[in-house]
Simulated assay, not measured.
Amino acid sequence: MLKILICTTKTDRFMQLKAIVQELYPSEVILAKCKEEVTKSIMLHSIDTVLIDLPFTSDQHEIAYVLKLLNRYPDLNILLLLASKYVYSVRERVEKYGVFVISKPVQKEILAQLLSFLRANSFRFQNYLKEQKKLKNKIAEIKLVDLAKCLLMENEFLTEAKAHRYIEKTAMDERKTRKQIATEIIQRYQSI
Rank of each mutant, 00 (worst) to 15 (best):
Leu115Cys: 02
Asp53Arg: 02
Gln107Asn: 13
Ala112Thr: 07
Gln180Asn: 05
Ile63His: 09
Arg178Leu: 13
Leu152Trp: 05
Ala19Pro: 02
Lys40Pro: 00
Glu62Gln: 13
Pro74Ile: 08
Lys33Thr: 12
Ile30Val: 08
Glu23Asp: 12
Ile20Phe: 10
Pro26Ser: 08
Lys68Cys: 09
Ile102Phe: 07
Asp146Val: 02
Leu144Ala: 02
Val101Gly: 13
Glu174Ile: 00
Arg188Ala: 04
Asp146Gly: 07
Leu135Asp: 03
Leu129Lys: 15
Ser41Val: 00
Ala161Trp: 06
Lys162Pro: 01
Ser27Asp: 05
Arg124Tyr: 13
Ser191Asn: 11
Thr11His: 10
Glu174His: 08
Thr159Val: 05
Lys96Arg: 10
Met43His: 03
Pro55Gly: 03
Arg188Phe: 09
Glu156Tyr: 09
Lys136Arg: 14
Lys138Val: 10
Asn155Phe: 10
Ile142Lys: 13
Ser122Trp: 04
Ser58Tyr: 09
Phe117Ala: 04
Arg188Leu: 07
Lys108Pro: 01
Gln16Ala: 07
Ser89Tyr: 06
Lys149Ala: 10
Asn121Val: 01
Arg124Trp: 11
Met15Ser: 09
Ile110Asp: 06
Arg93Lys: 15
Phe14Ala: 01
Thr9His: 03
Leu79Glu: 11
Leu82Gln: 12
Phe14Leu: 05
Asp146Cys: 06
Thr9Phe: 00
Ile6Pro: 00
Leu147Tyr: 12
Thr170Asn: 08
Lys169Tyr: 02
Thr177Leu: 02
Ile181Pro: 03
Gln22Glu: 14
Ala171Tyr: 01
Phe157Gly: 02
Pro26Val: 07
Asp59Thr: 00
Glu28His: 06
Ile181Glu: 03
Leu79Val: 15
Pro55Leu: 07
Ile167Gln: 07
Met1Leu: 06
Lys18Tyr: 06
Thr49Ala: 08
Leu135Trp: 06
Met15Val: 11
Ile192Tyr: 13
Ala161Asp: 13
Leu5Ala: 04
Leu17Ser: 03
His61Pro: 01
Pro105Tyr: 02
Arg175Trp: 05
Val38Glu: 04
Glu154Ala: 15
Leu135Thr: 06
Leu51Trp: 04
Met43Ile: 11
Tyr128Lys: 08
Asn121Lys: 14
Asp59Asn: 12
Val29Tyr: 07
Lys18Glu: 11
Glu28Trp: 02
Ser89Pro: 05
Gln60His: 11
